[in-house]
Design a binder for these strands. Structure first.
Length: 478
RNA sequence: CGGGAAGUAGCGCAGCUUGGUUAGCGCGCCUGGUUUGGGACCAGGAGGCCGCGGGUUCAAAUCCCGCCUUCCCGACCA
């Protein structure tokens, strides 16, 4: 990680734990020191601080724009769901009951029917889809909601697994399975994968979940698995083909063109605040967070070396210019020493730092420093805006290339379950799904390794887990 | 939810074994001054229900019981 020229600074008390020393500890240090989140008072709950929430808001707007471009509309459904709704779909209730929070009392009285705090909304939304859909002319129905959900987590970790988290859940109903699948694939590729690649610089492996890893109640679950810098996998997003399972129990039906009654085919798909954790662990380094410019609440920080009126004025002018051009930029007017301010912004992962001192000003220049590579550039003060915007684009692109290179470097192709178990200690392993099978999956799971997804040899998403020649991507995971 | 460890100032810790004055230290914070091109320094200062509840005792941060929370390892998950 030491890329700086000149004297290397020594570790200082209060600095981050190095990733190589203790990755989980490094993660907690970053979350705390970059002021992203705190633990809430009740077990597993999370307080998202402004800097962390700022990243989430940008993720939201990038996702929301793409979701709406597919024709889905936002709506809102209730937090509290009658317990009975969950019981209707057998696999769904079985899958979710261990992590349900149930409200049994209200207004000082025991409730006649307990209410569940939603862990996901297939059931309520199904109920209303049934009410709203009458005819094939009402289809497809494409809804999305931004909401909080609660899942009783036994081993919480900020952003990665919390009892309450924020997400987007999309729910659609279609007249045919083909139409549902076509739309689902569009969500997976044009919304999720495009968002991950272009907004988060986060490449992943796309594929299908194995039957045991599937969403409770789905006939297929699609996933995008990202590799964290410790070689473990994180499921970044999921999209589910629910077939007619929910349509059957919630009676989501319609009359076709021939006047016949048919059941709808539904889908659901989600992306959560877990993505913030993924961003931290995919791009962060020993200096702290590294935020891709498109989701960075602060893209550029201008650091005046000293508190000198001319320098401060020049810094303010520069920020005004950048802001005017749509760049999210701030001046650090803090009185801490130069070095301290620099490291504080490094921990926060601000993509680009502009150092401005009396010497620079006299020479009519500034020093630009990239967070991702620590490269320093000297550039004329005039006409910096174009330089900065193109540099931000380059950082965005280079982060993707670097993350993909790390992923490829730590993914090995193997031929047996034993080799896969070995390889998964430091990264991902890929092997024919045919040599894994149910029994192999058991052995992997026994070794704390799981099949993250099944992919075609060319990396595309299979339409069915029984397709021939599929590859299993296996890894330890979060 | 099972196994382990831990909760003392915002953060990191000492004190507890062997109960007994105003509970300490480092970092951070406040005030003033000197500083500032890679985690500054000096002086002065503020800040504590010792996780919560109960018990033992003349006396509890310290001993006992219960609970809550956090971290690590497992089983479950976005």
């Amino acid at each position: 990680m030491a890329r700086l020229t000149g004297q290397r600074r020594r570790p200082v008390a209060g600095a981050l734990t190095p990733q190589s020393e203790d990755f989980p500890r490094w993660y907690q240090d970053v979350v705390a020191k970059a002021e992203m989140a705190d633990n809430g008072p009740a077990r597993g709950t999370m307080v998202i601080r402004p800097y962390g929430y700022g990243i989430w808001e940008l993720m939201q707007s990038e996702l929301d724009r793409r979701i709406k471009a597919t024709g889905a509309e936002n709506a809102y459904f209730p937090l509290l769901i009658p317990l009975g709704y969950f019981a209707r779909e057998a696999e769904h209730v079985e899958g979710f009951s261990p992590e349900l929070a149930v409200v049994t009392h209200g207004g000082g009285e025991e409730l006649a029917e307990a209410l569940v705090v939603r862990p996901t909304s297939e059931t309520v939304i199904g109920e209303f889809m049934a009410k709203w859909i009458q005819s094939h002319r009402d289809l497809p129905l494409k809804l999305n909601q931004w909401a909080n959900v609660v899942r009783w987590e036994l081993r919480p970790r900020l952003f990665l697994r919390s009892a309450e988290f924020l997400w987007q859940e999309g729910h659609t109903a279609h007249a045919s399975h083909d139409d549902a699948l076509e739309y689902l694939m569009r969500i997976h590729l044009e919304v999720y994968n495009d968002f991950l690649i272009n907004a988060m610089s986060a490449p992943g492996y796309l594929g299908l979940k194995t039957p045991r890893e599937r969403f409770a109640g789905a006939i297929n679950s699609l996933t995008i698995e990202g590799m964290m810098r410790d070689g473990k996998a994180l499921q970044m997003v999921t999209s589910h083909d629910l077939g007619q399972n929910f349509a059957r129990v919630f009676e989501i039906g319609f009359q076709n063109e021939d006047g016949q009654s048919e059941l709808c085919h539904t889908t659901s798909w989600g992306a959560s605040t877990r993505l913030v954790g993924g961003l931290i662990m995919m791009h962060g380094d020993d200096q702290g967070l590294v935020v891709p410019p498109r989701v960075a609440p602060i893209q550029v920080v201008v650091i005046p070396v000293r508190e000198e009126p001319e320098v401060l004025a020049a810094a303010e002018r520069l920020v005004a210019e950048l802001t005017g051009a749509g760049v999210r930029a701030v001046v650090d007017r803090g009185r801490a020493s130069f070095g301290r301010r620099v490291t504080d912004w490094e921990i926060k992962g601000v993509p680009l730092r502009i150092e401005l001192g009396a010497r620079d000003l006299a020479a009519g220049q500034v020093t630009l420093v990239r967070r991702d590579t620590s490269d320093k550039l000297t550039r004329p003060l005039g006409g910096l805006v174009g330089e900065v915007t193109s540099l931000l684009e380059r950082v965005q692109a280079d982060l993707l290339v670097a993350a993909a290179a790390r992923r490829d470097e730590r993914t090995v192709d193997v031929e047996s379950v034993e080799e896969a178990l070995e390889a998964a200690q430091s990264g991902f392993a890929r092997l024919p799904w045919a040599v894994v099978g149910e029994a192999g999956e058991d052995r992997l799971n026994a070794g704390a390794v799981s099949v993250r997804c099944l992919s075609r040899p060319d990396g595309t998403v299979p339409s069915d887990v029984n397709e021939p020649d599929l590859l299993a991507v296996v890894a330890r995971s979060y």
